[in-house]
Design a protein around this nucleic acid. Sequence first.
DNA 1: CGATAAACTTACTTATAAGTAAGTAACTTT
DNA 2: AAAGTTACTTACTTATAAGTAAGTTTATCG
Lengths: 191, 191
Amino acid sequence: MTIPRTSTREHILKRATVLFQGRGYNGFSFKDISTPMGIRNAAIHYHFSTKSDLCSAVMQRYRDLLKSETADFMKHGGSARYQLEAYLAFIRHEILDAHCMCPLTNVAVAMDTLPDEIRAQAVTLSNELLAYLTRVMELGREQDEFQFNCAAEQKALSVKATLQGAGQLARLMGPQVVDQVIDQIRCDLGL
Amino acid sequence: MTIPRTSTREHILKRATVLFQGRGYNGFSFKDISTPMGIRNAAIHYHFSTKSDLCSAVMQRYRDLLKSETADFMKHGGSARYQLEAYLAFIRHEILDAHCMCPLTNVAVAMDTLPDEIRAQAVTLSNELLAYLTRVMELGREQDEFQFNCAAEQKALSVKATLQGAGQLARLMGPQVVDQVIDQIRCDLGL
DNA sequence: CGATAAACTTACTTATAAGTAAGTAACTTT
DNA sequence: AAAGTTACTTACTTATAAGTAAGTTTATCG
């Protein structure tokens, strides 16, 4: 058959994203992608030669998404508060609607068992993410929107860590955890 | 051979703990335990009938450890500050010295792929952990040691989430992350 | 219309996983 | 000293994983 062929690669990537961010690298197999799609494992290998390649593409897409999202946030005015809220909403959506974790969580957990390529992508992503959040924190303090008395980098790190943890605890303790933790982040910034 | 037999079960549990907390349920196999110990997989099955049983025992031990640790913390005087610091030191040691994550992280990540038994243990652990931290927060506020203006439960949740995240980010960004995040937790409690 | 390339499938290989059944050596009990 | 129990091993089964090679269909291009 193979009628609408153009979109197969995209479908594979989408399923892989959900699975990678939802279960981790070692928590899914090619079958979890191919069977629900009604294709064969070999079709995945046609588009992505290895599992490492596939997950590397997932990481790359997440970085691209983040880049375009954060660029978007910045367009809508320079308000640090707005940018923080946009990022919080993005994370909130990923956790509550998509039931996904930040890829950094999944990489960190299985660190020792992963191909170098994936680890490298994760390190780059963490640098990009922290750089963005650090700028938001700096901006917020300059504009007297946020209050904190440590390095902006440290505050950004702490915010990111808290959000990572929220994603995990929400799975164990229920979705209300996410909003409680996000509230606390705002509160700790003097909002 | 089998000369020192008594301790095999304990050795298996210790290796399984390191592997489970270090790589997650799907990130290790029986071989990772048996080969370095110089025993066969079947020897593991003799002591623990399934992988689920083994990891359930690991979770149980972690809960027991936590229970005795927190009981210990409480004996050394009722100071909330002391109890917080003791827990922070415990987590810090697990991350930096043992290179382990809190089991909650590993369970949350692979949630959908895990046996019910493990999930149930994790839910219980998260309740116990949060109950303890909530008591510490309540105590700290009563004694004017900590400052925060939300429910003690929410503050405890936020602290735990932050520590969970610190464990992950430390693997990607280096060990200094842990102390930076811990500093921030203190700071956000008015310390 | 025929050749070519893209997008697959079928069928296979190799490796590794968890788990089991039957046998064995050493200590323990009677 | 015989019998049973503990703590394993050897050898196996079954399932599943990633990955590959060769063939097939469909669209496209000259």
